[in-house]
């Protein structure tokens, strides 16, 4: 076999593998959309589950997930952005900062169930919040913190140093440089990171299992010390538990489709923002 044929065979295999991976994605998406599309309507999105989860909708779970997104963003966004500004703009490259970076990287690799354990131990039991929106939001907030920090740091790093120096040379203070030059330029990239972290929060199940999620609540939450239903947990419980799995399947397909739709919307908007930025640059 000469090297041309060998190359032809090898490249053909790589093409097939790539098509296969794309095929897997389309199969999963297509399957969920095909099965779930018939279930989704206004009623499904705006009413509570009825008849032991076999009918009705997922409104309380949507509200719950929105509460968790809001709560965790309130915690993780300011903290993450501020510490990213600190590590990339203020702190030097000393031992301490390198330690913080390694720690942040490690934090990103910790499995989500470990965050659930930690959240249960600290927020639910030690601090006495019980299963509540605040306990779940803090747990999810800590989970996405490394994502927020890393994307913000990268956004800040992408700002050319010449701009910073120019600003400082014109007599601007460090704070003025950061707030008027660096941050506005890095803003679209930071936004992309924040949107992606919202996507992460809306899909995570393991961290909320023991910190906030409820199997079924007819009432919407009144305060941040209440439990809520949440979309991913709702999908999990109606997929694996219940007396009549066949009857709850349509509800499960609908819930899965809503989750997929959230992910699609988030990815599309993140890439739109990125594209817009590339056009400007």
């Amino acid at each position: 076999m000469n090297k041309k044929t060998k190359q032809g065979i090898a490249f053909m295999i790589f093409r097939i593998l790539s098509v296969a991976v794309a095929g897997i994605l389309f199969y999963i998406l297509g399957f969920i959309i095909y099965q779930g599309a018939g279930v989704i309507n206004i009623e499904f999105l705006t009413s509570s589950p009825t008849n032991g989860m076999t009918a009705g909708g997922i409104f309380p779970a949507i509200v719950g997930t929105l509460c968790l997104i809001a709560g965790s963003s309130l915690f993780a966004f300011p903290l993450g952005i501020l510490s990213a500004i600190y590590t990339s703009e203020y702190a030097g490259n000393g031992k301490v900062i390198r330690f913080v970076r390694v720690m942040t990287n490690n934090l990103a690799g910790i499995p989500s169930i470990v965050f659930g354990l930690f959240g249960m131990s600290l927020f639910v039991n030690t601090m006495g919040f019980g299963d509540s929106i605040i306990a779940g939001s803090l747990t999810l907030g800590i989970l996405v913190l490394p994502l927020v920090i890393r994307t913000t740091e990268e956004a800040l790093k992408a700002v050319p140093d010449s701009l910073r120096r120019g600003s400082l040379a014109l007599g601007a203070s460090k704070l003025q440089t950061v707030s008027r030059i660096t941050l506005p330029i890095a803003f679209p990239n930071i936004m992309t990171g924040l949107i992606l972290s919202i996507g992460r929060v809306s899909g995570e199940t393991a961290p909320i299992l023991f910190t906030v999620a409820a199997y079924f609540l007819p009432k919407l939450p009144q305060s941040m010390y209440d439990q809520v239903m949440a979309l991913p947990y709702h999908l999990y419980v109606i997929a694996v538990s219940g007396t009549d799995l066949e009857a709850t399947r349509p509800m499960a397909y609908g819930t899965a489709l809503v989750l997929i739709a959230i992910v699609l919307i988030i990815n599309v908007s993140a890439s739109l923002i990125r594209k817009k930025l590339q056009k400007h640059a």
């Binding site: 790539s18 991976v21 794309a22 897997i24 994605l25 999963i28 998406l29 399957f31 969920i32 989500s112 992606l196 996507g199 809306s202 899909g203 995570e204 199940t205 393991a206 991913p232 947990y233 999908l235 999990y236 997929a239 694996v240 399947r249 499960a252 899965a256 989750l259 997929i260 992910v263 699609l264 988030i266 990815n267 890439s271």
Partner: peptide
């Protein structure tokens, strides 16, 4: 085209993968 698709694959929540695995 491929790159965003792989990002999408990474973005699908694990519970949806689990559900897909369970029913298919």
């Amino acid at each position: 085209v491929l790159k965003p698709m792989i990002e999408l694959l990474a973005g699908i929540p694990s519970v949806v993968y689990g559900f897909f695995g369970l029913v298919v």
